[in-house]
């Protein structure tokens, strides 16, 4: 029974974190119909920022997440302005491949600058803290990351649904030309959305650096899982992304323990295929 509870807890926490990583991607996809292939590398960049800030200035991730979020907002917005903007509309594949090129560039840039050594942030406030209830071991850094992810997801959702800028974003997503006719500066909206997407993954990365090793390839698998989460949830839907992420976290956790750890990702991808065949536009897609 304790095994079951542990597996459940791990699945929920991982799921929440996947949710924050994927939320930004979902927003970008929904508004701009762009799959950002460099999403995993943005995560890696965020983790590096958190690591260096922690090592050089001594800021704890519990505080430095603001910095990593801001940095990634900028990085993402700049990527949009410099790269993606010139690719949109020209062909469906152009932004995807351009961001693929960006991902290769970022990964190797970090390899070259920071060496491939694995970096672990130690001495953080929550490090080593574990809450034990009912036989479950809940590590504090992951718990903080997942709770924070949920909060940020709600904030993002609220922003999109309830604020004027959020409505502008929704309008742009539904019909770009109509939005422009209504006086919305869609160019600014696109920049904002890309930046927000980056900020989400930046915040996620900021928390993850407190318990995961940082190295150039760290983002690869997270990237793939994020794509599947977004597609599973239905593009553009933040609640969809969260549900899909939790579902994937749970499937990964249960398949990993009750079947075999080595196929836990097979189960995740297989889940996607199964669901998408039943609902071709994802759980909440429209």
């Amino acid at each position: 029974m304790t095994d079951f509870a542990q597996v459940l807890a791990d699945g929920l926490m991982n799921g929440a974190i996947y949710g924050l990583v994927a939320a930004g991607l979902s927003l970008i996809w929904g508004v701009m119909d762009v799959i950002n292939f460099a999403h995993g590398e943005f995560l890696m960049a965020a983790m590096y920022v958190c690591y260096w800030v922690g090592v050089l200035i001594g800021l704890d991730p519990l505080i430095s997440w603001v910095l990593t979020g801001a940095f990634l907002f900028l990085l993402s917005a700049v990527s949009y302005k410099v790269v993606v903007r010139r690719c949109i509309g020209k062909s469906a594949m152009a932004p995807l491949l351009a961001t693929f090129g960006l991902s290769i560039f970022l990964k190797n840039f970090c390899l070259n600058m920071f060496t491939p050594n694995f970096r672990l942030l130690s001495g953080t406030f929550l490090e080593g803290m574990v809450f034990n209830f009912f036989g479950m071991a809940i590590p504090a850094p992951q718990l903080a990351a997942s709770l924070f992810s949920l909060v940020m997801l709600y904030v993002l959702y609220y922003f999109v649904k309830r604020t004027r800028t959020g409505w502008a974003i929704q309008a742009t997503a539904m019909d770009k030309e109509a939005a422009e006719l209504m006086g919305i500066d869609t160019e600014r909206i696109f920049t904002l959305v890309f930046g927000l997407g980056g900020a989400c993954v930046g915040i996620a990365g900021g928390f993850m650096a407190s318990y995961l090793a940082v190295f150039p390839e760290v983002g690869t698998l997270f990237s793939l899982i994020a794509f599947v989460v977004v597609a599973l949830g239905g593009f553009g839907s933040i609640p969809g992304a969260l549900c899909a992420a939790i579902l994937i976290g749970l499937v990964e956790s249960f398949a990993g323990f009750y079947i075999a750890p080595v196929i836990k990702y097979v189960a995740v991808f297989a889940l996607y295929i199964v669901v998408i065949l039943i609902r071709p536009k994802g759980l909440f897609g429209w």
Binding site: V228, V230, F269, I273, K281
Partner: peptide
């Protein structure tokens, strides 16, 4: 569209 592409990644 993108759903197909991601399904192929998954495969």
């Amino acid at each position: 569209g993108h759903y197909f592409a991601i399904a192929t990644f998954a495969i």
